[in-house]
């Protein structure tokens, strides 16, 4: 039954497709879709240096186009994602990374909010304990 449905669908598709004279299947823009997908994922976490509020993936600046071309080349040469990122950081610095590296200087950035959460939770707990006191409290409905 399922097979029949698929066949019917295929026929329907064929009929539809052949009704227009030059119909063809759309081709991916890049020659290598796998590489393009890799480029996309990687460049989404990189910052464009020219129009500084877009990612390298979305920027249409000429430098961004050049850099994407360069990344494609590096990837074709078999470089890993990390090597590609290192290549860019060596030239433009940590600025290109939308995800800053974790090091001494960014420790506050990465762990500060969690510290705030933990300290806040701890302080709240102590204050609540003090506030509740020792007497017995009755629950209140709604």
């Amino acid at each position: 039954m399922k097979k029949l449905l698929i066949i019917l669908l295929l026929i329907a598709n064929f009929v539809l497709a052949s009704s227009s004279a030059f119909a063809g299947e759309a081709k991916p823009l890049g020659d290598d879709p796998v590489l393009e997908a890799r480029l996309k994922t990687l460049s989404q976490d990189l910052r464009c240096l020219v129009c500084q509020n877009t990612t390298l993936a979305d920027s249409s600046a000429p430098l961004a186009e050049d850099l994407r071309q360069e990344i494609r080349k590096l990837m074709r040469e078999g470089k890993s994602d990390k090597e590609v990122v290192d290549y860019l950081v060596a030239r433009y610095g940590d600025f290109v990374l939308y995800k800053p590296p974790v090091n001494n200087e960014t420790a506050l950035l990465w762990f500060g909010p969690f510290m705030l959460l933990i300290i806040g939770g701890f302080v709240l707990f102590r204050v609540l304990k003090k506030h509740a006191g020792s007497e017995d409290i009755q629950a209140e409905d709604v």
């Binding site: 610095g93 990374l97 939308y98 800053p100 969690f114």
Partner: peptide, 17 residues
């Protein structure tokens, strides 16, 4: 030095909190 803090940071830290 100059760094950028973008979506990957917020997606990780903000969401975890």
């Amino acid at each position: 030095g100059k760094i950028s803090v973008g979506p990957p940071y917020f997606d990780a830290v903000f969401v975890a909190i």
